[in-house]
């Protein structure tokens, strides 16, 4: 009897949840994360871009590389708002040439950063962008 009552209890609340779920998700995603500002160079002068926006764009750019899964992105900022570099941590598919994967990621990330930040100083180079291969995976979802 207690088991039946437990199941009924679960079903009853779930009906209410269906009514409000979309609203709850939308509100949660509308919230902005605390973030540092990074100075970018627009045609008409400097602007500031949230570090979280850069991270989201870099994830989007790098996620197109099929042999890797992005794990983490850290933007290095010097002083108040000066871009100083980026560290991208990935896991790579077992057996793929890692140097080649890292170069592809660096190229895609550099292009996206240049689009977002403009002609920044220091320019995105090997020395200001680190690709860290943390793990390998064999299946389709990134676990080793």
């Amino acid at each position: 009897m207690l088991k039946e009552a437990t199941q009924s209890l679960r079903d009853h609340v779930d009906q209410r949840w269906v009514e409000i779920a979309d609203r709850v998700l939308t509100r949660a995603l509308r919230t902005t994360r605390t973030s540092l500002a990074v100075q970018a160079q627009a045609a008409n002068g400097p602007v500031h871009i949230s570090e979280q926006v850069l991270i989201a764009h870099l994830r989007d750019a790098v996620s197109t590389v099929p042999q890797s899964r992005i794990q983490d992105v850290v933007i290095t900022i010097e002083g108040l708002d000066t871009y100083a570099g980026v560290i991208i941590t990935i896991s790579a598919r077992f057996g793929v040439p890692l140097i080649s994967v890292a170069d592809t990621i660096r190229k895609l990330a550099s292009e996206r950063l240049t689009q977002l930040l403009g002609p920044i100083v220091p320019p995105v180079t090997v020395t200001t962008m680190h690709i860290h291969v943390q793990d390998v995976f064999q299946d389709d979802h990134g676990s080793a």
Binding site: V53, I55, A56, R59, I70, Q71, D72, V73, G142
Partner: peptide, 9 residues
Amino acid sequence: DLARQAALG
């Protein structure tokens, strides 16, 4: 996996 991706926006 999902938590990592969501953490990146």
